[in-house]
């Protein structure tokens, strides 16, 4: 079962950096795992702890937030706020008995297509090592629940 495990990962990407970097990665024909589903956000400052918790509750094996480099946020400090919220959610996961590493914050610029692909690979590998989330449901309802988070 674990051999066939394909992580389901949600990536909340800032439109000014990570989302554009994903676009660049595509233009550069860079391969990255198809396990990552991208959700565009206007700024990672829009990320609420509940977005991450709902994704985990819906059965995502991992969730990450990708924002601008620190000091480069289009809205000045949205990415710094996002990092704090990610840290908060890591704390909640620890409290409920899930690995905090299932949630992560990354920073990159729109010019960093290869870095975007690398993050997607790293996160997929990390989740593959951790194994499926115990909250994951593999039937259609799990897929629908996760789809609602995107």
């Amino acid at each position: 079962m674990t051999d066939a495990f394909e992580p389901r990962i949600l990536a909340y990407c800032c439109r000014y950096c990570a989302y554009a970097a994903a676009d660049l990665a595509g233009s550069m024909r860079l391969a990255y795992p198809p396990n990552v589903r991208i959700v565009q956000v206007p700024c990672t400052g829009r990320i609420d702890a509940l977005f991450l918790l709902r994704a985990i509750e819906a059965g995502a094996d991992g969730v990450y937030v990708a924002g601008c480099l620190e000091g480069e946020c289009h809205f000045l400090e949205g990415n710094l706020r996002a990092r704090k919220r990610v840290d908060f959610v890591k704390g909640v996961l620890g409290e409920i008995g899930l690995e905090p590493e299932r949630v992560e914050m990354f920073n990159l610029s729109s010019a960093m297509g290869p870095r975007f692909a690398e993050i997607a690979r790293d996160m997929t590998e990390r989740i593959r090592r951790l194994g499926p989330s115990p909250l994951r449901t593999d039937d259609a309802s799990g897929e629908t629940a996760l789809g609602r988070c995107a």
Partner: peptide, 17 residues
């Protein structure tokens, strides 16, 4: 928001248990 966070946390903790 805090109600939703607590509800999600309790639901997940009990599912895990």
């Amino acid at each position: 928001k805090e109600v939703e966070i607590l509800a999600a946390s309790l639901r997940m903790a009990r599912r895990l248990a």
